[in-house]
């Protein structure tokens, strides 16, 4: 019974989220474009699936993963757990489990992120299969993992956020300069795509938990910034992944040429 109430409330939340989008689409379809979209029935059914699916997805997360993830973030950052470290929580390396958790949870939530699944499906369509969907998603996930772990390190050490992000931008600019034209827009997109439904709540809980445990940190000032890390690092990792596959391709071609000679 309680579950049923949860389901209904999550579904009504999703419907409310979708309502402005549907309203905008409807207004432009009827008053500006003035024609019916093709296969209207199918599109409507698709929308119903999306709302139902996202609703179920969110209830499941609320029931299972979010409470656990948030409790875990709280427990791993609790003074008792950290105080058991070598230096009683005074040094950055007392927090190794937190970096490990940040890395693992960043990776895992990204793989489950529906928006990233959507973009990689589209990328596969458009590139005629030249872009490897799983490879792209793994590259993004590794980027988020490294980003969140480094972000946790930043909160622990209390170093300045802009330095990290600006250094990240510089690396992205250097990589862009060498990257192939096809991957650049997709890499830039991946930063915004990763931080959606699954990733944001869990890493926000991690950031707030960490900042409120550490004595000299203010949760409201130092708790921010993890999402920024999670948006910049995937850009780097996707560009790096593209360079890596291009490099391997070149090595293979050279090996084949040498074989022929």
């Amino acid at each position: 019974m309680e579950l049923l109430v949860d389901i209904l409330s999550a579904l009504s939340d999703t419907v409310l989220d979708v309502a402005p989008i549907v309203a905008i689409l409807f207004v432009f379809q009827t008053f500006v474009l003035r024609r019916r979209p093709p296969n209207l029935r199918r599109v409507v059914i698709g929308f119903v699936y999306v709302v139902l699916g996202l609703g179920l997805f969110l209830i499941g997360l609320e029931e299972a993963l979010f409470p656990l993830g948030k409790t875990m973030a709280a427990q791993l950052t609790a003074p008792q757990f950290i105080g058991a470290g070598w230096h009683g929580g005074r040094e950055w390396n007392d927090y190794l489990w937190i970096y490990a958790f940040a890395f693992a949870i960043g990776f895992a939530t990204t793989i489950a992120e529906p928006a990233l699944i959507a973009v990689s499906l589209k990328a596969k369509d458009v590139s005629g299969g030249a872009i490897n969907v799983l490879g792209l998603r793994l590259a993004v996930a590794v980027g988020v993992a490294v980003g969140v772990a480094l972000g946790a390190f930043r909160i622990v050490t209390g170093t300045s956020l802009p330095y990290y992000i600006i250094a990240g931008y510089i690396v992205v600019i250097l990589q862009t300069w060498r990257a192939s034209k096809v991957i650049i827009p997709l890499a830039y997109d991946s930063g915004g795509v990763t931080t959606s439904t699954v990733t944001v709540p869990v890493i926000t809980a991690l950031g707030l938990g960490l900042a409120s445990t550490l004595p000299e940190r203010s949760p409201l000032i130092d708790g921010f910034g993890l999402i920024a890390f999670a948006s910049v690092f995937p850009i780097m990792s996707v560009l790096a992944y593209a360079s890596l596959t291009a490099w391997i391709q070149r090595l293979k071609e050279r090996a084949e040429r040498e074989k022929k000679q």
Partner: peptide, 22 residues
């Protein structure tokens, strides 16, 4: 919860292909 998440993800991707993308 995990079962819900899996079913939800399946429906969402199906709905993308039928509705949002087209």
């Amino acid at each position: 919860g995990v079962v819900f998440v899996a079913l939800g993800l399946m429906l969402f991707v199906r709905g993308l292909e039928m509705g949002l993308f087209p």
